[in-house]
């Protein structure tokens, strides 16, 4: 009972997860901000190349991947909230669904890259495709790490009782996954939509 009460206290104003994950988030935001600005400058300085190259991307794949990551974040947020409010090991299903969304993203990205490379389009083709492959590749590494993190979160959520440290583990993993999600939101906008 004390453990449940301790876990519930975490809904009061507090830093979600470990403070260290927020230091990582800050570092990642700085690095990706540079990526975003580079794409924006390229879009301005090589407008014709970027517009022509962007037109060859499959917008449907970009939209599908956006829906997958947003839905994954939704499942994670629901899972964390449920586990914190009135924990039940069955709530681990939310994290399983989020993992499936992540795997769907990886498969979709693999298909997209495969069709591009089969068509002779590589990072050497032009600056747009260099940014496309490098930045979405770095993001894909984040997604793969995120899936591993969610497997740990899922394992933790299956415990019969969660103490304060377990809840903090769930929040830390969730924070990383949401970071992966919103980095993609900007990449999708800059690479597919402009």
């Amino acid at each position: 009972m004390e453990r449940v009460a301790a876990a519930r206290q975490d809904v009061r104003p507090h830093v979600p997860g470990e403070i260290g994950i927020w230091a990582f988030v800050a570092g990642d935001l700085i690095v990706f901000s540079v990526f975003f600005v580079l794409v924006a400058i390229g879009n301005r300085d090589e407008a014709e190349v970027f517009t022509r190259s962007r037109a060859s991307l499959d917008l449907g794949i970009g939209v599908a991947n956006t829906v997958l990551l947003l839905s994954g974040s939704w499942f994670v947020a629901r899972g964390v909230a449920r586990c914190r409010e009135a924990h039940d090991p069955r709530f681990s299903r939310y994290f399983s669904l989020a993992i499936l969304c992540g795997l769907g993203f990886v498969a979709n990205k693999g298909f997209e890259w495969g069709t591009k490379i089969a068509a002779g389009i590589t990072p050497q083709t032009n600056d747009f495709y260099m940014y496309f492959f490098v930045f979405t590749g770095i993001h894909l590494v984040h997604v793969l790490i995120g899936i591993g993190v969610l497997l740990l979160v899922r394992h933790t959520s299956r415990r019969p009782v969660l103490d304060r440290r377990d809840v903090r583990t769930l929040e830390t993993g969730a924070t990383f996954w949401h970071l992966v999600d919103f980095l993609w939101i900007f990449l999708f906008a800059l690479l597919y939509l402009l």
Binding site: H14, V15, P16, S73, H178, F182, F186
Partner: peptide, 24 residues
């Protein structure tokens, strides 16, 4: 519009899903 819509979406993910609404 593309950039500002992305900004709004990131704000929603941060505020609600990342629980910044209850952060310091």
């Amino acid at each position: 519009g593309v950039v500002l819509t992305a900004t709004f979406k990131v704000g929603v993910v941060g505020y609600q899903f990342m629980e910044l609404k209850t952060a310091p």
